[in-house]
Design a binder for these strands. Sequence first.
DNA 1: TTACACCCTAGACCTAACTCCAGGGTCAAG
DNA 2: CTTGACCCTGGAGTTAGGTCTAGGGTGTAA
Lengths: 139, 139
Amino acid sequence: MGNSFRIGEVAERSGVSIDTVRYYERRNLLPAAPRTPGGYRIFNSETIDRVLFIKQAQDLGFSLDEISNLLSTNGSSECRRVRDLLDAKLTELDARLKSMHEFHDKLTRYLAECEEELKRYPDSAECPVVIEIAHAERA
Amino acid sequence: MGNSFRIGEVAERSGVSIDTVRYYERRNLLPAAPRTPGGYRIFNSETIDRVLFIKQAQDLGFSLDEISNLLSTNGSSECRRVRDLLDAKLTELDARLKSMHEFHDKLTRYLAECEEELKRYPDSAECPVVIEIAHAERA
DNA sequence: TTACACCCTAGACCTAACTCCAGGGTCAAG
DNA sequence: CTTGACCCTGGAGTTAGGTCTAGGGTGTAA
């Protein structure tokens, strides 16, 4: 069927390993999948989307515990709790974005210094950037 | 002296543990510190700045190996190699910033939905956001 | 010259998030 | 009704990045 997948296909389509899918189920990041009479898990396409969501959040610095709190499959999750979690996450994310931008600028300045040096001395071994990072870094 | 620190003070001022400082030295993220006759490490304020740099980069998703590549205390690091590393990091950072902004927007939309629901039904248990995340997530 | 906070090393241990393995069962195609 | 790809479980192993412990030495102020 177009909306029924075995674990291998879920794994492939969401870019994780089979073990990871089972691991997520154990961690309650995915609801316990229904089974065939023989014991095979049966998934639908929503599982794939959900794994993708988990991966994205994780890439952005959230732990599986945090994600699990947000998605909590166990027990009804009142709207108020979710609201508070989201609020906290957003504050955190704002801070991360800010320092990320600053770090980006810092690296950009370093890159410019490198280019400068290489323009002047194409085979320079003494990189001014390394010296700078190594010896004083309070930008 | 104003520019001479023992490991405990370095740790405290840069917000990591003593063990972490020693660990960074072992990993060559910090140059091997000179010692007192009795074997105590002696640091200067640049070490503190460097630990702060490492922590910042790490928070933003860089591994210690990557940071170590950039700072490589072992062997002369030619400017060209540093330039290439920086260039690659910046590309990576751009991508991360982009998906971070998208995720931020997504969470903001979820938060708005929560507020909406709570305005309507102040004690709502059925959070529309959880249902949405759990059941279809391809934004 | 003792008190006591601080430092040393080697090596074991910890947590998160997987990843692998053995030993065995399932299922669809031919 | 067999075969080959795929799936099952329980539990051990792995990696990154620390953290802790035992057993012992250092430095300095009173």
